[in-house]
């Protein structure tokens, strides 16, 4: 039930933002245009670090896998390549030597 209430809220704010722009006639102040530009950067970065370590004491190899994934993302700009490379490195590093 909580999920569907949350979903309804997500739909409301998303549709609201899309619709408000189409019916408004005035412009946003420059400061807020700059603010909006940085929202994805700030939110995505904030979603990376808290879940990076994980709870299984594998922090080091998870961070290492993430570094390789970041390089893959930077070189290829492909979401799925970065995820696949990162998971592969993680699974390889997990194999006990």
């Amino acid at each position: 039930m909580t999920f569907w209430l949350t979903l309804a809220g997500m739909v409301a704010v998303t549709f609201g933002s899309r619709y408000a722009g189409l019916v408004r006639r005035t412009d946003l102040p420059d400061f807020w245009i700059r603010f909006l530009h940085f929202v994805p950067v700030a939110v995505f970065a904030a979603l990376v670090t808290p879940s990076l370590e994980g709870g299984l004491g594998e922090g080091e190899i998870r961070v290492l896998a993430a570094v390789v994934a970041a390089i893959a993302a930077w070189r290829t700009r492909q979401l799925w390549v970065a995820i696949a490379v990162g998971m592969l490195v993680f699974w390889l590093l997990r194999i006990p030597f």
Binding site: F44, L47, V48, A66, A73, A82, I83, M87
Partner: peptide, 20 residues
């Protein structure tokens, strides 16, 4: 068991890198 939860930071990292 596979540690699939690592997909969260990886996905957000992959979304982040191209826009920085």
């Amino acid at each position: 068991k596979l540690g699939i939860d690592l997909i969260f930071p990886l996905a957000f990292l992959a979304l982040l890198v191209p826009i920085v």
